[in-house]
Structures are given as structure tokens and as C-alpha cells.
Simulated assay, not measured.
Amino acid sequence: MSIERISPAQARQRQQAGAVLVDVREAHERAAGHAEDAVGVAKDALEADPRASLPDPAAEIVLICQSGARSLRAAQTLIQAGYLRVASVDGGTTRWLAEGLPMAVPEQSDEERDFYDRYSRHLRLPEVGEAGQRKLRAARVAMVGAGGLGSPAAFYLAAAGIGTLVLADDDVVDRSNLQRQILHSEERIGMAKVESARIALSALNPRVRVETFAERISSDNVERLIADADVVFDGADNFPVRYLLNDACVKLAKPLVYGAIHRFEGQVSVFDAGRHRGACPCYRCLFPEPPPPEAAPNCAEAGVLGVLPGVVGLIQATEVVKLILGLGESLAGRLLNFDALGMRFRETRLRPDPQCPVCAAGREFPGYIDYHAFCATQ
């Protein structure tokens, strides 16, 4: 059966004569304005259970979307479900508005208006949508390091709408940081990095809560930092903190998004052994022992290409968002290596170590150790 296609003016006339006008766009689209007196029912919800919103299959029903495509598909579904008088509005809400027909804008708080405007491009993604964006808003991410890796990641996580970012770093901004640590600026040299980061992130997205943790991470405070986090971000620049974070995340069953950079190369992975014992590796499965200090100098000693932490940090941020939303395939069990000079990515499969002293299946947490001594003696 062919579907009747009508103009917005005809739709308005039928609405005034008693037809039910149904806007099948998503809630975030209707929030910007909809045809006056239209009933809002998202297309997927309408198709899943038409009778819940339209109990009378004999009633005259007019469907409208943004341009007319979705309403046509929804109309076909209704006809197949036994509805007898269904029409679709050609040109949708766009044409309705262009022809000067009356519109209604739902009453919203400033916060909700900001939500729909700011995240409109996320809301258009079916894989994210409003439910996913609200999940991001409710999330808490603990970030260790507000430097090279933490800077780009924190910017994009704040922009994406992560509700709470906890930034841990005990350092202050130095002029040498500005070549790569884009959270900071010339006028904030000498300021605590976490405070400098809070200023930058709040300017970008004032709806994101930024909690500062201006302490050196140790066995005494690491659990206080990550206990309530949904995801932990490793932007550390030294091995003692990496091993400590790994062990704490295994103990508290937190996914750890790892990143590291050296000169022109970087690597990223997700260590999720705490939630998946025996199935996912931890950092210790990859590096049972740290390399000697001379084999892994820090950026101050070896130098680093300024744009490199941007690439690596943004891959880490992507993994954080995916973990919160439950989207796609994480890097758990995979190590992604990036060679900036060759512009190549290489993937290495990682397996859990059945003898790992921390994450082996059935093994009790052995307790924290003196990580500085452990790294210094290897």
C-alpha cells in the first residue's frame, strides 16, 4: 500500500480537524522545537509498540520528522500493524518551519538547554543518543597526570561531557611544558598543574566538575583517588606510579587506560584484569619487571616530539569514552604501538599471565609494595 504524503499546511488542517500529529524525531531533536500540539514519540519506540502511543488503529494519524524520510518509514510500519489512516508530512519539520506554521519549544532549564545544544552531535549518534550522553554525564574518571597525555585527553573528555574529572598531579607548570602540555599557558607558569587544568577545562565546559588532587600518588592515597571512579586514566611519566596504579586497579576492579610516550613513539592499552580475572592481562603481565632507568629515560632526559602525546592521549580518551558507553571493542588484551616517524600503528596481542603475582585468577591481592625500591632495583 502506498503511503499518503501531504504538505505541512495539509497536515496542520488535518490536525485541527482531529487528526493526531506525531513527531517521530528523538527527544533531543524535539527539544529545539516541534510542530505545535504534536505528540512526541521517537520512531524506534513507536515502531516497537504502536498501541502504547496510538491505541486506536482507526484514528487518523499524521507523522512528521525532520525531513520526511523517517516519518515515511514509520508510516509503513503502522500500516503493516493494521493502522488504516496514516499520512507522512513531506519536508518534515524543516518545511513546516519554513512555511511559517506554528511551532512550540518545550520549557527547559538552562542546564537541559545546554545539554541538548552542547552534545547535539553525540545525540545524533544512535550508538550514543540521549541515554549514552547522560551516562557520560554521570561518569567519574580519575586521571593521573595533567601533563603531556593528560592534557589532550582531559580536554576531549571534558568536551565529551564526562560529569566528573579527578585530576591528580603534584607538579607546577613550567615553560618547558608548554611545547606539548596544552592544558597550560604562559600566564599560568608556576601555578599548580591541577589548578591550571581546572581553569582551562572549566572555560571549555563549565558543566563538568573538575576535582583537583595536588598530591604525589602513593600507596597511602591511591585508593582515595580511584575508589569511586568508573575508569582510571594513566598519564604517569614514571614506572613506580604505573605499577601502583595497576595494582590498585586490579584490587578495586577498575579498568585502567594506559598510555606511554618516548621520543617519537607511543603505546596505548586497556588493562581490565580487575574485572576480568584470567581473561584480561594487567600491566604486570606486559612488564613483569621494569626496565633499568637508563633504558627508559623520561621526557626531560630523552626529549619528546610535541605532538606525540596528543595522538596517544586522544586514543586513551577514546578508550575511556568507549568503556563508559560500552561501545565497540576496547584495547583490553591488545597493545597499540604508534611510530610517528614512520606514521604506522602496530598491534600486539597480550595474554594474561597465569602466574601474575597480582591478577592471576583466584589469587588474593598481595598488598602494596615499595614501588620506588622495586623499580630502582631491577
Rank of each mutant, 00 (worst) to 15 (best):
I3P: 01
E4K: 15
R5M: 10
I6A: 12
A9N: 09
A9F: 11
V20K: 14
E26T: 09
H28Q: 13
G33K: 10
A35H: 02
A38C: 07
V39E: 08
G40Y: 00
D44H: 07
A45I: 05
D49K: 15
P50K: 13
A52T: 15
A52K: 13
L54C: 15
D56R: 14
V62K: 01
S67R: 07
R70Q: 08
L72W: 03
A74Q: 04
Q76Y: 04
L78E: 00
L78P: 00
G82C: 11
L84Y: 01
V86R: 01
T93S: 13
L97W: 07
A104R: 14
Q108Y: 03
E112W: 07
D117L: 15
R118N: 12
L125Y: 04
E130H: 06
G132F: 05
G132H: 06
R134Y: 06
G145I: 08
G150S: 09
F155G: 00
F155E: 08
Y156K: 04
Y156N: 05
L157A: 02
G161L: 10
G161R: 07
G163N: 11
D169C: 15
D171M: 13
V172Q: 13
V173L: 12
Q181V: 13
H184R: 08
E187C: 03
E187P: 00
I189S: 01
K193Q: 08
R198Y: 03
R198K: 13
P206L: 08
R207H: 06
V208G: 03
R209L: 11
R209Y: 00
R209T: 09
E215N: 06
R216A: 15
S219T: 14
N221H: 04
L225H: 05
A227V: 10
D230L: 13
D230S: 11
F239T: 00
L245S: 08
A248D: 04
C249T: 09
V250K: 01
K254E: 06
P255R: 02
H262D: 04
E265N: 15
S269C: 04
A273T: 03
G274Y: 01
H276K: 10
A279P: 00
R284C: 05
C285M: 09
P288W: 06
E289I: 12
P290W: 07
A295S: 08
A296D: 08
A296Y: 03
P297I: 09
N298R: 11
G303W: 05
G303C: 07
L305Q: 02
G306C: 09
G313P: 02
V321G: 00
K322L: 10
E329V: 15
M343F: 12
M343N: 08
T348C: 13
R349Q: 11
D353I: 11
D353C: 10
Q355R: 13
P357S: 09
P357D: 08
C359A: 14
P366A: 10
Y368H: 14
D370L: 15
A373H: 14
A376K: 13
